[in-house]
Design a protein around this nucleic acid. Structure first.
Lengths: 215, 215, 215, 215
DNA sequence: CTTTAATCGAGACGGTACGTCCGGTCTTATG
DNA sequence: CATAAGACCGGACGTACCGTCTCGATTAAAG
């Protein structure tokens, strides 16, 4: 008899009892991000989040199974702000999104939380799945979109048609995403140096040359 | 009353009392890795490590300031196993080291620990420094070495001479390292798919094309 | 906005809206006793009682202010079963009622609940009053009745007439009640040995000798 | 693997590690009584006791399995203060000890706690045993002593010799203890009226007459 | 037959204590 | 001195229960 956890897509027709407050959800997520900024992942506590949100600890646990899942959701919405600017050419587009992503990772609430939940996810399959669906897969759209736009401009050759062409395209998207996201994360969190315009330019130059070499 | 912490290089002449057992160090680090394998970072406890090593908790804290630093050291030695094979051409060399790095990150003790300590390091300057010195900087040698070897073979142009040339070279090493390490980490931990020969080949193809585009 | 609480004797004319179900009251009290048997006072929960009674928690709290008051009422009705048998002589009458009382306190629902609510009553005046009116005072009738019957039989001297005589009689009733009820409760709950015929006989012998010494 | 709980009689020779502080034991028991006075059983919390004692909650749980056992021990020592005064005749002796017992039960720390733990003991065999050994059995000495003294004075007949005589004496002690303790507890906690000299006199008169009727 | 004002089941909610766990320090006795 | 053992403080964890609240759905009696 597993408790129903969070976010049933349907508006739960036929359900009885007092409905969950939707605003409470947002208040909790907001409070979580604020706590991340102030305290960082390591010192963030559920009690503190509850207090900031003006909510009982029970309410947190009724909606999220644990700290990790809460933090993933709290951070995930920030990633949805990313978008692919149309700056006229592929290199500029890449530089733009790299800078955005770098700026996002530089924010204390993402910096401290992202790697922590990824680390936990190595021993928690449910968490890994939540990260993938809430963050990773949602951002691959940027790569797909950039690729399409460049193909329309003629900067990249069109996809091969047919099933093996689609497979190759999907693999390419995965690889490129790993390279872009990985490099930015590594620079920000491990090397601990900023993703500034100069770096973004250098990186996108390398990447673009690499992409041309793919085909 | 600051405790003298760990690893004075000199055999500290003139000190009296019972000396620390060197074998104990290795036993603790071994126990730490074993605990990481069994429990993962999140569930690993100092008491458990102490018990596995047949040692008192006191002994741990006399040698490492806290859990994070212990784990960094326990994992760091694994990275020293990496080496750059000479397979005759740059692309093969890259593929070789990518596969090694991928295999290393696939091991449970690194997978679970690395991102965790990186996450902690965002709010712990001392820890960040220890990660850099114990892991990151030590592995940049691979990039430097591979670059030199490729230059000798004529696969890459020689560095510009003069101070601004050296600076550019250092920057390039940093960038390349972020790209390689970042991509592998991201594929392993976030995308959660294996770094196999096919991926290594595709990745090194892109990277090599990118490198040629750098100059 | 004080809620109207429970058991207005009058059928409250002039009120509209759906009336409370009377059967629900009994179902709840029955469920409470069942829960006491199964769980004991300490582990009994309001949710559990509600579930057993097939009723919402709200319904409980609409009728009783809190757990303590509910339990007092649930247990109180059991005490009304006590009666003074006419066995022909005072000593036999006492033995009879002692055995009845002993049997009642041996039942798990009273055993576990009675002392608990008494304990709570030390810091809850309303609860103490409810216990007194629902249980204690109602059972003093047994002492009064037995006394009268014995006086009619000539086993005890008649009360002194006049105000000071009545006072003395009331005091005597109080004392005797404390002795009887106290001894049985203590034997059952503290000494934890049964109130069997042998003990009842010995006790009533002592008590009767004591009573004769009173006058 | 049950943890060793509290008060091994032996001074535990051959044990290693930091020994438990004995003073801490007393500080905790003192704090518990203070909390009982201020808050009563129902509102007393382990955290509060720990804070009052200047001790971590862990330390409490290392020594007592739960709140109930702690409170029993905290209250038990108070009962050891009771003693049988030698006032020259049995009735006076009884009155003296009744008043003492009444005064003890009137204290907030005993009043609120005693019945609560007795109530819990109905569903907790270990607790019942602890109450018996820590409180009940220790106070039976008063009955035994008073009886002996009265026999020496010739106020009561000597015990029958022989095994059945001893059994009868033991039973009598049990009965008398139930009557005395029960009556005082009932008057104090249920009837909620004071055990004053007048009541003590009346009660002891009845009791004494009853005792004479026993033989 | 509608209106009205309550009751009812379900369950979310704020609050608070529970008993457990762990990090890191301190105190013993023994090398 | 180092060491093993384990007590200790502090504080977060996730659970449980109390008593309140908010829903939508009933249900009797009054109009």
């Amino acid at each position: 008899m597993v408790a129903r956890m969070h976010h049933s897509a349907s508006p739960r027709k036929g359900r009885t009892g007092r409905p969950r407050s939707v605003e409470t959800d947002h208040a909790i997520l907001r409070a979580t991000r604020a706590a991340l900024v102030d305290l960082g992942w390591g010192r963030l506590t559920m009690s503190d989040v509850a207090a900031r949100a003006g909510v009982a600890k029970t309410t947190l646990y009724r909606r999220w199974a644990n700290k990790n899942e809460l933090v993933v959701d709290a951070v995930a919405v920030l990633f949805d702000e990313l978008e692919l600017p149309d700056r006229g050419c592929l290199q500029s587009d890449i530089e733009g999104v790299v800078l955005q992503f770098g700026a996002l990772l530089a924010r204390p609430e993402t910096k401290t939380a992202l790697m922590a939940v990824v680390a936990e996810s190595t021993t928690d399959e449910a968490l890994r799945e939540r990260i993938r669906s809430a963050i990773v897969d949602r951002q691959k759209r940027l790569v797909v979109l950039g690729r399409e736009r460049a193909q329309q401009r003629g900067e990249l050759p069109p996809d091969d048609t047919g099933p093996e062409g689609e497979l190759a395209a999907a693999q390419a998207v995965g690889l490129i995403f790993d390279v872009i996201a990985g490099a930015i994360v590594h620079r920000t969190l491990v090397t601990a140096e900023p993703v500034d315009p100069a770096w973004a330019h250098q990186f996108s130059t390398v990447l673009l040359a690499g992409l041309r070499g793919l085909s």
